[in-house]
């Protein structure tokens, strides 16, 4: 039974992942990602971490993906503006790189003794699944990182707010002269001719 569930949702995850990276429209990619995240959540539950599964849906699928969709809508990213994956050097180098990477993974994990083989994992204990256990660890040994992550989120909020401000508002980046002019930069400007009279 477990194997069945695993096979089903693994296949789903893989399929939707491939759609994520290949589809022309960003909206479809995002929605595909949601499907992938759902499958991952199920796999988390299967692995004895139901809390994380729930968290996955809440945070990832519920917040982050929504954020993505907002931005896509905001920027009105058109289907036409995107293109397929570029053919050419970039693609082949990427495929090669990934192949090498995976090969190294295989070498590292399978050959160097970290293999786990086909042995069955230990059974899921009540302890493992319990939220209490997780919370104890989180607020116990990892209290400091927890607080720091909170700080990090604060910083992220501030940063996002500042970065995304409309140009022209008080204290905006434009006013501070970070962008030279209000015009879109487009192509790099041609070098201005020097008007020295050094004959």
């Amino acid at each position: 039974m477990e194997t069945l569930i695993f096979a089903l949702f693994a296949a789903l995850a893989l399929g939707s992942a491939i759609v994520v990276i290949t589809h022309k429209s960003p909206i479809y990619s995002t929605l595909s990602l949601v499907l992938t995240l759902f499958s991952m959540a199920v796999l988390f539950v299967l692995l004895g971490a139901p809390f994380l599964g729930a968290l996955q849906i809440l945070v990832y699928a519920g917040a982050i993906v929504v954020l993505f969709l907002f931005v896509i809508m905001l920027l009105n990213v058109q289907k036409e503006e995107t293109a397929h994956i570029d053919r050419g050097a970039q693609l082949w180098t990427a495929l090669l790189g990934v192949a090498v990477f995976l090969g190294m993974f295989w070498l590292a994990f399978w050959r160097t003794g970290l293999r786990l083989g086909d042995s069955a994992p230990p059974a899921i204990t009540q302890e493992l699944v319990s939220l209490k256990g997780l919370a104890a660890e989180l607020f116990g040994a990892y209290l400091l990182p927890f607080e720091m992550v909170g700080l990090l989120l604060l910083v992220a909020v501030i940063g996002a707010t500042v970065a995304a401000r409309r140009p022209g508002e008080a204290g905006s980046l434009q006013e501070e002269g970070i962008y030279a002019s209000g015009e879109p930069l487009g192509e790099p400007a041609p070098p201005t001719p020097r008007k020295e009279a050094n004959r």
Binding site: Q90, A94, T112
Partner: peptide
Amino acid sequence: VRNYALYFFLGVILLFWWVAF
């Protein structure tokens, strides 16, 4: 930017190689 990302990735592969082997 994508070229830079590629260099990045290749660097990570090398780093992994060095750490693992």
